[in-house]
Design a protein around this nucleic acid. Structure first.
Lengths: 242, 242
DNA sequence: CGCTCGTTTGAAGCTTATCAAAGTCAGTGG
DNA sequence: CCACTGACTTTGATAAGCTTCAAACGAGCG
């Protein structure tokens, strides 16, 4: 089994029981891996991909760019995320996927996935679930941007990223590697770079986190959760039939 | 065929070809309809619905409520929207669905939908597409909240709602019935009520729209689209195989 | 060493929230 | 028929928060 499929299985297993036969089906999917340098575009807006990509290594973002040069990163993706699974359904990309750090991605042709939907209904629902979870994350982000302070947004984001990394085994203690610049972070939080910097500073000053050279450590998990009003229900971490 | 299924078919047909057999499969789904008064809760947060609901009449919203009493309406739903289709996959609601006007909804049991996924792979993908489109709408909303001015947010929202209503045949000319109060609108736009009111006033002053007693009329479609940077790509209005 | 990229700090000005109150309109009961 | 009521919209004033512009600082790299 390739690392890509192994990560995917780990993520799926946290949500429902994956039978050995289903694991085998996933493992038999054809794939091709590619590397992208940080800052480069993995999938372009308006393109029509014929394969869906799964992030194997690195940090990627979903960028919605406006006419006026504005950019909003509507979501961050970590290894194991089936980043472009919905490309199977939407055909034409309404946004782009960018590499925030150097990234390795695996491509799985749409035809293989379509074939899977014909023979594996349960597995299909599990993949569908992954897109539904992405949507739930998005929903939370909307609420954060609309109704929460910058400090709350950042606190929530850090709790979420930590939790998601933990699922795929990429956290270390209460910390994680987070290779994102404050400029990019500001595009996630919907703030100016200056204010993003001050917001990071605020969390540091309150002794909630430390953040040095791409390493984030959560010093006070309870405090961070409570500031960010973090409740992981939306990540669907219960393993139950779908 | 019930009105609920007819609306659903109209929405699906705009995205892909729906065969008569598939229409029949949808029509044979068991359903039960209910009415909700404006302001009431259609599905409660943290509940575990055993049926998915489809909006037949009225305006509904997806409410993400925070600890501190804040409320963000992360999405608005119009007749024909399969509002809670993802409840099939996520099990426990991470948000609530509220009736913004009086609403009629049809419930379709999860077991019927699961049965459908086993026998109708193409139809399954089409339903999956609907959830993917909801996610795309959400993504746009995130970008609007993060990087656009209140006037742009409102302009975009009105373009979107108009376009979506048009798909299901609920627009009239360049206008539509929009039974939402400014208080609720402020929860969609992530603004205070006062500022929401001033923003509506601004669009009126620029002669882009008129808005009287729940009737919105777009006076200058080009102007509104350009202000809101509206491009309907994300609504996937191309009819092509999924 | 100097350059580039990213972080940090300061100050001014605009945008938006908040508080407060008046205006409008439909429905209700005297 | 008209005052009364309650929900919603509109307006005004003040204060807080955030953006913008500008510049300094620090680390990594050719």
């Amino acid at each position: 089994m390739t690392p890509a499929i192994e990560l995917l299985c780990r993520s799926l297993s946290r949500r429902d029981k994956l039978t050995p036969a289903e694991e085998a089906s996933l493992a038999s999917l054809t794939q091709r891996t590619s590397h992208y340098a940080r800052g480069s575009e993995i999938i372009a807006e308006m393109s029509r991909p014929s394969a869906s990509c799964l992030l194997v290594e690195g940090l990627a973002g979903r960028a919605v760019s406006g006419e006026d040069g504005t950019r909003q990163l509507s979501a961050l993706h970590i290894p194991g995320d089936f980043v472009d699974l919905h490309g199977l359904l939407l055909r034409k990309m309404d946004h782009s996927i960018v590499a925030i750090s150097n990234c390795t991605v695996a491509y799985i042709p749409h035809e293989s996935l379509i074939a899977l939907t014909a023979t594996e209904p349960h597995l299909t629902r599990m993949l569908w679930t992954l897109t539904a979870i992405d949507a739930a994350i998005q929903r939370k982000m909307t609420a954060l941007l609309g109704r929460h302070t910058p400090a709350q947004r950042l606190a929530h984001l850090l709790c979420e990223i930590y939790t998601r990394l933990e699922i795929v085994g990429l956290s270390s203690g209460l910390g994680f590697h987070f290779p994102i610049t404050q400029t990019e972070l500001s595009d996630v939080l919907g703030l100016s770079v200056v204010h993003t910097n001050r917001t990071v500073g605020k969390l540091r000053a309150r002794n909630l986190i430390s953040w040095n050279s791409q390493q984030v450590d959560i010093l006070d998990m309870e405090g961070l959760k409570s500031l960010g009003d973090f409740d992981p229900t939306y990540l669907s971490l219960q393993s139950e039939p779908r």
